[in-house]
Every structure is written in structure tokens, then in C-alpha cells.
Simulated scan of single mutants.
Amino acid sequence: MRKITAGLFISLDGVVEAPDQWHFPYFNDEMGAAVGEMLGTADTVLFGRRTYESFAGAWPEREAAGGEDAGFAKTLGDQRKIVASSRKLEFTWRNSEQLEGDLVEAVTALKNGPGGDIALSGSISVVRQLLAAGLLDELHLLVHPLAVRKGMRLFDEGDTAIPLRLTSSQAFRTGVLHLVYAPAERADEADYDDAKPHLPQEDQR
């Protein structure tokens, strides 16, 4: 079964929208390595339409320009790119195709099919749906030490909680935290009486 990994730049107050407007001051070699690990090791990248259009509007030109980011641009170009959209799309970036049918059903088929890892970058609506469906194996959050205070948050309103467990954490020199989460079983019911024994106890000496 293929592993599906999503990576997101996120602020301290949970904003994931338009990270190009606030995250670049924190981008260093540590973050570059984390991004490369998330995207560069997959053979398929899954996108929402808006994120795909942002990538397709930048990375082919960077590959053609042959600058210091051309190697990563070529890696993205060579990967299979699948775009989830309700609109009929036309593609100019190589190895791009549109996801057919229901998102959850189609991604479940991809996950159970042949191939290497599947990565997502951004694509908030897709990440939300895959999280709710239990299809994400890893959620990488690059938590920036600032409150953006406006914009779309990662988690929207809903009736069902999504339990996660922390599998690794790393603090970058910039103060960014790289947190990796995996799905978790729902926690048992508990109340204050269950928590009370874990409060600091008065020293009886």
C-alpha cells in the first residue's frame, strides 16, 4: 500500500493560506531539507486546482532557467501530477492529469495501487477531505512562530474530531517547528476526575 504524506506551512494561529506572503523569512536549509524529504521522495504529487496552478505557473520556468533551483524543478516536472478539480482542466506541464471521479474513492484506489509514495503540498481542501476519510498516513506541519491573524485555517468547523499522534518533532534555528503526525485511535472518554491525580501534589513533608 502506498504512503500518502501531506506537508503544510502553517502559522502559530493555524493559518495555511497564502504562505508565500509570510513564510519566506523563515526558509533556511533545514526547511529546504524537510520540503525535499516530503516532495522529492514521492513519485506522485496530488494537488488541488489552485495549488497546482500556482506550481505550474512557476516551476516549469524555473527548470528552463537552469538556476540553482532547476534540479528541484526538474524533479517536480518528472513526477506524476494528479489534480483534483470539478472543472475540466487543460495541462501544459508535463506528466499532469486530472483525477477522475469522487476524490475519496479515487485516492483510495491510488493508495491501494502500484507505485511509490504520494505527496501533497498545500491543497487545503484535499488535505481536509483525506484527513476526514482516514487516508493520510503522515501530516507534516511546519509551524512558524508568528500569528498571521487572517486567512484560511487548516481545520474547519465539523462534527467529528480527528485524533492524531505526534511521531516526530524538530525545532529549526529560525524557531519553526517541524511536527509530524499520524492517525490515532480515538481517546477514551475522560473528565476532570480522571485528570485530577496527575495535578502537582502538595509536598506533605
Rank of each mutant, 00 (worst) to 15 (best):
L146P: 09
L131H: 13
E105Q: 08
W93P: 08
I82M: 06
K88T: 15
I162A: 11
K81Q: 04
A161I: 04
I124G: 14
N112Q: 15
S121C: 11
A109S: 12
G115T: 04
G158N: 00
R80Q: 10
E138L: 02
N112C: 12
G122M: 08
D117N: 12
R153V: 05
D137S: 00
P145G: 04
L141R: 05
S96A: 12
T75D: 09
N95A: 01
M152S: 06
K81P: 06
A106L: 07
Q79D: 01
K150G: 04
V107P: 10
V104S: 04
F155R: 03
L146R: 07
H140Y: 02
Q98K: 05
K150L: 10
L136R: 10
R80C: 01
R80W: 01
R94H: 04
S125A: 13
L110F: 01
S96D: 03
L131Y: 09
K150T: 03
E157K: 13
G122E: 01
D102M: 03
D78V: 10
G115Q: 05
L139C: 07
G101P: 02
G113F: 12
R87M: 07
V143N: 06
R94P: 08
S86W: 05
F155I: 11
V83S: 04
L136A: 10
G122T: 13
K74I: 00
P114Q: 01
L103R: 05
Q79L: 02
T108P: 00
S85K: 09
L154E: 06
V127S: 06
L139M: 11
S96R: 04
V127L: 08
